[in-house]
Computed example of a mutant assay.
Amino acid sequence: MKKKLGLASLTLVTASILAACGGGESAAKKDQQTLIVSTFGLEEDKMQEDVFKPFEEKYNVDIVLELGTSSERVTKLKSNPNSTVDVIELSQSNAADGAAADLFEKIDSTKVPNMDNLIDSAKELSADGSGPAYTLNSIGIIYNKEAAGMEIDEWEDLWDPSLKGKISIPDIASTFGPAMLHLASDYENVDITTDNGEAAFKGITKLAPNVVKTYSKSSDLANMFQSGEIVAAVVGDFAVPIISESNPNVEYIVPQSGTYANFNTINVNKNSKNKDLAYKYIDWRLSQEVQEKTAVSINEAPSNKEVVLDGETAKNKTYGEVAERTKKIDPLFVNENLKSWIDQWNRILNK
């Protein structure tokens, strides 16, 4: 079983590792390095099989995991300059927040050969030395058509009065919380960058009667659908298999009007003592070999352009025609306004 660290216990890992290196170990075990990876807690068993275990075997490494949401993990890193995290996987806006706080090593692309194989939009993201994107995801609507009593095919349908107390949306501090505000501003026919979200909160106020609960972890939606607590939700495509596997009556749609995208990126902690190994891990995560596997097992759309998906594998991913309909969110704009947005959001939805 992979070693995992709670967010509060990560600073103790160095002592634990040293204590574990006692006598009686094989030469290979003694030479084994440890890499601390901060990542999302989704589909951990499949991540073990397709990402972590093969990397450990290839490089004689012991991977120790720090699991949690993107926002709580970057906050943890910001508050602890002595963190022993080596690499951290984050959503785009949280990565921008960490970069602004000077937490990350500027990536030397010559040490990550697979960066040459990134899709153009991912290359643009890394042009300034930011950590490269290993996947692209976006939001759509997942719903139980029979329970909803209506067909949902556009974002504006979520505001329908018949859905009162029946939907869930991502919390503002989660990966796609800011995207939810962009959708609400679109509902009001206002570009959110022109008024810093004023119209968006008018839209959210109108939507509030329909929202029974906001969520921080998309895995929680499976239980909400199962219990009948909700009939529809806004969700990132990466979580669709988790929900649909336990709730076969739900379907996932991406409105023709478009969707909002997010890159998940990998950065190296500026204070990491294992930077060479961290670079190897990044290159591994970007490789065609790994991304072909994770596209199937954990529904990750590839950022490596050498990966070509068949129709079945491409389903429910930000790939092909869906990727062409994505709109970008400016993470710097989000981070400039996020504190104010969280305050307004909580007054409306988290009373």
Rank of each mutant, 00 (worst) to 15 (best):
A314I: 04
I169Y: 00
E146F: 07
L338C: 10
D108M: 07
Q33K: 13
G149L: 14
K46G: 07
S79I: 01
Q256I: 14
L5V: 03
V334F: 10
S219Y: 05
A19L: 12
V64Q: 09
L309H: 05
N299S: 08
K351F: 06
D191K: 13
N304A: 06
G98K: 05
A95G: 06
S126T: 10
Y187Q: 08
N117C: 13
K30R: 12
K4A: 04
D310K: 01
L158F: 09
N80G: 06
F40A: 10
G311F: 00
E324H: 03
E49C: 08
N210T: 15
V235Y: 07
D157K: 08
E72S: 14
G24N: 08
A179K: 09
A323N: 04
S287R: 05
G23Y: 11
I266E: 00
V250E: 10
G197M: 07
Y187A: 08
V61S: 08
F238S: 02
L90F: 11
A184N: 07
P178V: 13
Q92M: 10
V240D: 00
K275V: 15
S79G: 11
K213R: 13
D160I: 03
E44S: 12
S9W: 03
L207W: 05
V296K: 14
M224E: 13
V37N: 00
I243M: 15
S16I: 12
N137M: 05
E72G: 07
Y59M: 12
E56V: 11
S174D: 00
A8M: 05
A19Q: 12
A278Q: 03
A8H: 07
T259S: 09
D45M: 11
D108S: 09
L5H: 01
S272P: 04
I342G: 00
K106I: 09
N247Y: 14
S216I: 14
G320M: 12
N223V: 11
V212T: 15
E312F: 02
A200P: 00
K328G: 05
L5Y: 03
Y279P: 06
D116V: 09
N249W: 11
M150R: 08
G258Q: 11
Y252S: 06
V268R: 00
V290L: 15
I243Y: 14
L90G: 13
K30N: 05
G165F: 00
I266S: 02
S70T: 11
G320L: 12
S130I: 08
R285G: 01
N80Y: 10
G68K: 04
Y252T: 11
